[in-house]
Design a binder for these strands. Structure first.
Length: 569
DNA sequence: GCCGTTTTCGGCCCGACTGTTTTCAGTCG
């Protein structure tokens, strides 16, 4: 997969052109739009190119397609080399500093010959920067603070991590007397697997008090900006958050606007303009007259559209589907009847069988699959066939006693390097079901890795392919595997494909899971829980399923116990 | 550079906050 390289290339092109300042802005925006679009592409860009489908990617036209072609085939881009001739790469790093945009970076470069972040810091400390036109003493201070910030901040983080902060903030604001309504918007509300910052909205008749309640929270490390309707803070730990204060008549349009995505909103505004309307966070207007804004449903209705669920708002076909009345009825958390991927103390979990069963029952589940590791995964104390048989009896005993939840006797069986499974076939047949996973040899080349996984999912005992890319956020890159081929084989063989919300995985992501469904697969939303608490990450797995346009029928965790058993058999 | 129920040319989403300015440019989302 070279998607990341191509995305970085396009962003670099845009940044360089913007600092150089000799191209018109829309050209630069076009590169960024194409880059964002590729970020949401589930497929391997090289394969898309091989099949001549580059120009079908939204925002990729003739010129960008040609540049991607050249870069993929030669590893270089002549155009980039030409425009970066004599262009200091350090300027790109300077652009990351909050408050510094292309114009200021350009001025620093042209006027003061500053080409690196270190040179910039030194110039600020010597107060050489404040003399420049458009700069001042406050700017110098902000740049110095910004340099520190960039060095500390770590960019996007997993939604599970942001979730804890968001819940605290929402609870805090909800209790405040000046606040009538609270919502968290942004990519958080869209349930994107990672979020860059948090966006909070409040309805208040006393905006200043509401803003103060936000900026004065103990969690706040620094107030970056604070105005009448908008404040920005930095939480301890480096997560940035915005608060917007809305009026009741703009609650729906504000929620819609700040939920995004950017490209979804741009598309909506285009539709509004075509109807002679104007859409902003304050409402939908015909001339100066507001015709919608108090509810999100009303905003969409004013544009002639049904309500679109936040998880779909990526400008990935959902607006067209809405226009045609073809939006999916997304799977909901309440539809989930169980989990197929969980561990107990028998291997590397922390809770007992009974504790896990009780926690699952408390979540309202009808069943819970216990899938312990197989022998090869020694670090997780994978169990041999004899120990598995003891577990089988424990589960049978539990199920006889239980008046409610039923346990399934599963295994998370390692896929070995050659694609064979970690138990002999006759042992595999003793389990109710098998989840199969890659836990080793992450570096195999594309073809070998693909053949390995294809062999595993084709095994008659394989029921669920767990965390198919093996990615771990901030820790491990995805394995090189042809997901389309794997999905096609899974569909053919009746092997479900997993969306795993455990640890720092979030694997598959939304776009990949959508591709899986498109190839005819059914999916499983699993937590890979190693404790009772971790069963609670199910909302993130379901969130990804919703981002993948999945309906309840597509997700085996929503099926009843008998149907699941029959599917596994 | 992209794209099409206004268009193959001429548009391209819209507004808040900051700091430096005396009316606004730059930055950000």
């Amino acid at each position: 997969m070279r998607n990341e390289e191509v995305i970085a290339l396009l962003y670099t092109l845009a940044d360089v052109l913007e600092i150089r300042g000799d191209e018109e802005l829309f050209k630069i925006l076009a590169y960024r739009r194409a880059a964002r679009s590729l970020e949401d592409l589930a497929e391997d860009v090289e394969q898309v190119r091989r099949e001549g489908r580059l120009r079908r990617v939204p925002g990729v036209g003739e010129a960008i397609a040609e540049k991607i072609e050249e870069f993929l085939s030669t590893g270089r881009l002549e155009y980039l080399e030409r425009i970066t001739d004599g262009f200091p790469r350090g300027l790109l790093e300077m652009l990351r500093i909050p408050g510094l945009g292309p114009k200021k970076v350009q001025a620093l470069w042209r006027e003061l010959r500053i080409t690196t972040v270190d040179e910039l810091r030194e110039a600020c400390e010597k107060h050489r920067v404040s003399h420049l036109k458009g700069f001042g003493e406050r700017t110098e201070e902000k740049i110095l603070a910004g340099i520190k910030l960039v060095r500390e901040a770590s960019g996007r983080r997993l939604i599970a991590e942001a979730w804890e902060v968001a819940e605290q903030v929402v609870a805090h604001l909800r209790e405040h007397p000046a606040v009538a309504r609270v919502a968290a918007a942004g990519s958080f509300r869209r349930m994107k697997e990672t979020v860059g910052d948090l966006d909070f909205l409040v309805l208040s008749s006393r905006p200043a008090d509401a803003a103060k309640a936000f900026t004065a929270m103990p969690l706040v490390q620094e107030v970056v900006a604070s105005g009448d309707t908008k404040s920005t803070v930095l939480f301890q730990g480096g997560l940035q958050a915005d608060l917007r204060v809305l009026e009741a008549r703009s609650w729906g349009s504000g929620l819609q606007y700040f939920t995004g995505s950017k490209d979804h909103n741009i598309h909506l505004r285009t539709i509004a303009a075509a109807k002679g309307l104007k859409l902003s966070e304050y409402g939908v207007f015909r001339g100066d007259e507001p015709i919608a804004g108090d509810t999100e449903e009303g905003v969409y209705a004013a544009l002639g559209l049904p309500y679109i669920e936040p998880e779909l708002r990526e400008d990935a076909g959902e607006i067209q589907a809405a226009q045609e009345g073809k939006l999916p009825h997304l799977v909901r958390l309440e539809d989930v009847k169980g989990d197929f991927h969980a561990h107990t103390r028998l291997t590397d979990g922390v809770n007992t069988l009974e504790e896990m069963a009780a926690a699952a029952e408390a979540r309202g589940y009808a069943y819970l699959g216990l899938s312990e590791h197989s022998p090869s995964l020694a670090v997780a104390r994978g169990i041999d066939a004899d120990t598995a048989r003891i577990r089988k009896k424990e589960i049978a005993g539990f199920n006889r006693r239980s008046k409610g939840i039923q346990l399934l006797f599963g295994t998370e069986c390692d896929i070995l390097k050659d694609g064979s499974l970690d138990y002999p076939d006759d042992v595999l047949k003793e389990f109710d079901y098998a989840v199969v996973s890659v836990h080793s040899h992450f570096q195999l080349p594309l073809q070998e890795q693909t053949e390995r996984v294809l062999a595993a999912v084709a095994h008659p005992s394989a029921n669920v392919l767990a965390h198919p890319t093996a990615v771990k956020f901030g820790e491990r890159k995805p394995i090189d595997v042809d997901l389309e081929k794997v999905f096609e084989e899974c569909a053919q063989r009746g092997t479900a494909v997993e969306i795993n919300s455990g640890g720092n995985r979030m694997d598959l992501n939304g776009a990949q899971a959508r591709l899986a469904r498109g190839r005819g697969c059914v999916l499983a939303t699993d937590t890979d829980a190693h404790s009772t608490a971790e069963l609670g990450t199910m909302p993130f797995a379901v969130g990804l399923a919703r981002r993948a346009w999945l309906e309840a029928k597509d997700v085996i965790n929503t099926w009843d116990y008998e149907r699941v058993k029959a599917f596994f058999r």
